[in-house]
């Protein structure tokens, strides 16, 4: 009985890996080679065939946007900036947030207090205010957009991780490690970090999607990228006013975001199970 359950579980795991990884690899590769796949489709404006519905013309399989550009080509190419912004900003925020959360939670005391007050200050700043200040000082560019997203989001991870560490630091396995003289950094890396992956990965997958959309709202503040460069968030925003007349302009980039997040979720689930030390023994 126990044997069969275990078998079934490992099968599920690999399905998650296969589907998740395939989705992401396909999206990533096609985004990278979009201009090779669609030699003249990504930026070509054709005002006379604007808003062609999907499946109507062979040259626009998923229809065309208000400027007559091919939706399929733009969705594929749009992954480039969107994934770059979504993934790098989350990785940056996780690195910063997890490090600070671990240190604050593990050492407590004055370090903890100072860091958490800083987190409080950061949380009290509304995102839009932060974004506008950022534009005023640094100006808008791709790198600045990523930095802004990191700066505005690391606190979530810091808070989450610190809470987890506080709950774990007095557990027996940590106390035991300390008792036998394991160094601090080893306790943190080997014993605490693996126990945090679950919640952090969940938060990460949610944030990637969120950041892809935030990029488009930043465009409204004049901070995003050149509107001629396709991004999923930008396409969604552009298509919003055509929702009733030309659904395909916004539905397909939305679908792309959904598939990316699904892929990331599946991969994240799989990774969590692999890294979670309790996962292997608890079932």
């Amino acid at each position: 009985m126990a044997e069969s359950m275990k078998k079934k579980r490992s099968f599920d795991l690999s399905m998650e890996l296969i589907v998740g990884a395939t989705l992401l690899i396909v999206i990533l590769l096609s985004a990278l080679f979009a201009h090779q796949l669609f030699p003249d489709g990504v930026d070509k404006i054709d005002l006379l065939s604007r808003l062609t519905p999907p499946f109507a013309k062979p040259e626009h399989p998923l229809g065309s946007d208000p400027l007559g550009r091919d939706v399929l080509a733009r969705v594929v190419a749009g992954g480039r900036i969107s994934l770059l912004i979504g993934v790098t900003s989350v990785i940056g925020a996780v690195t910063l947030g997890v490090t600070i959360g671990l240190i604050a939670g593990f050492y407590r005391g004055i370090t903890d207090m100072l860091m958490m007050r800083f987190v409080d200050i950061q949380l009290a700043l509304p995102f839009i205010l932060l974004a506008i200040t950022f534009i005023a000082i640094l100006g808008g560019s791709l790198i600045n957009t990523i930095i802004l997203l990191i700066v505005s989001q690391w606190v979530q991870y810091a808070r989450l991780v610190r809470g987890q560490v506080l709950a774990l630091r007095d557990r027996e396995f940590i106390l035991a490690a300390r008792a036998i003289g394991v160094k601090d950094w080893r306790i943190i890396v080997q014993h605490l970090l693996p126990n945090l992956t679950g919640p952090v990965i969940v938060l990460m997958t949610l944030n990637v999607a969120n950041n892809i959309l935030l990029e488009s709202s930043l465009t409204f503040l004049g901070m995003g990228v050149d509107p001629t460069i396709p991004t999923w968030g930008g396409m969604l925003a552009e298509g919003r006013s055509y929702l009733q007349t030309a659904w395909w302009v916004s539905v397909f980039p939305g679908l792309a975001i959904m598939l990316t997040v699904l892929g990331l979720n599946l991969l994240g689930d799989w990774m969590r199970d692999q890294l979670d030390p309790t996962g292997k023994t608890s079932l």
Partner: peptide, 23 residues
């Protein structure tokens, strides 16, 4: 949208348009 179309027309005479939105 209009400006993006303008950019595309400028492309046809050999100018490379860069559109910069501001708040």
């Amino acid at each position: 949208e209009v400006v993006q179309a303008v950019g595309a027309y400028l492309q046809t005479v050999g100018l490379k348009a860069v559109i910069k939105p501001y708040e």
